[in-house]
């Protein structure tokens, strides 16, 4: 498999893993290991000053995994920029998964606010990976302002519906000059394999792994699916035909015709 290059970094794994919703830090750490991922997303929240807070970062092996802070919770461009700067101050990392989701029910991203924030953040030295609807025009605009990837959604976050935006993601992949990461809604390894077969450069999975009965085994299943899909894409899938084409030789000795 070819390496994935984002900005000036190379990744041999094409599976990004989100760290939300895991039952414990231990299960999260073992799922990250089983996924073989080199990119994990994290979020920022207020410290609960009345209770002990555990430090989930300590459970992530930062030699193996790049941390990708997200801007979840941001409802407009200003909030996303503020969260990005806080994340950079907290971690020293200038990478950010830019997400602006004003509507908590479907959590669909606001394209115009995302573009506005992306312009500010790129100028401020961030490596910006924006989460977007599968909108090929917006993807091009984000690429043009200097985003390092585009991350179109397959279906709403955490919905496990698979790739409902296929035709648009195919156009984004065809047109993009930056890596395309299919993010959100991938509920089964087969969905991830499908995205990779389509030519996506990587996928991001959280809910389907974290909420599985056995997150460690599910992480492994996604790892294998992503690799299988990528290898199939690099090899080139055969064309489809309407009629059958026999796999076995049709010897005629059973009948005298």
């Amino acid at each position: 498999m070819a390496a994935l290059k984002i900005a000036n970094s190379e990744f041999t794994s094409r599976l990004f893993v989100g760290t939300g919703k895991f039952a414990s830090n231990d299960i999260m750490a073992r799922a990250i290991e089983a996924a073989g991922t080199q990119m994990v997303t994290i979020a920022l929240r207020r410290v609960d000053i009345e209770n002990d807070n555990d430090n989930m970062l300590a459970a992530i092996d930062r030699k193996k995994c790049q941390l990708l802070p997200n801007t979840s919770g941001a409802r407009d461009a200003d909030e996303a920029v503020r969260l990005s700067r806080l994340a950079r101050a907290a971690s020293g990392i200038n990478w950010v998964k830019l997400e602006v989701t004003p509507d908590p029910y479907y959590l669909l991203p606001d394209g115009s606010e995302t573009l506005k924030a992306a312009e500010v953040l790129v100028k401020d030295g961030f490596i910006v990976l924006p989460y977007i609807h599968a909108d090929p025009i917006l993807a091009k605009k984000l690429q043009d302002v200097g985003c390092a990837t585009v991350m179109p959604l397959a279906s709403p976050i955490g919905s496990n519906q698979g790739i409902k935006t296929k035709a648009s993601i195919e156009i984004i992949i065809e047109q993009a000059t930056v890596p395309v990461v299919v993010d959100a809604g991938l509920g089964a390894p087969s969905h991830a394999a499908e995205a990779m077969e389509m030519g996506a450069d990587a996928v991001l999975v959280n809910t389907a792994i974290a909420t599985a009965t056995d997150p460690v085994q599910m992480a492994r299943a996604f790892k294998l699916a992503v690799e299988a899909g990528r290898i199939a894409y690099e090899t080139g899938l055969p064309p489809k035909h309407t009629a059958a084409s026999a796999s076995s030789p049709l010897t005629g000795f059973l009948r005298n015709e």
Partner: peptide, 10 residues
């Protein structure tokens, strides 16, 4: 004063 830290997220 805002005190903020990293938590799990997707």
């Amino acid at each position: 004063i805002e005190l903020i830290r990293f938590v799990g997220g997707g």
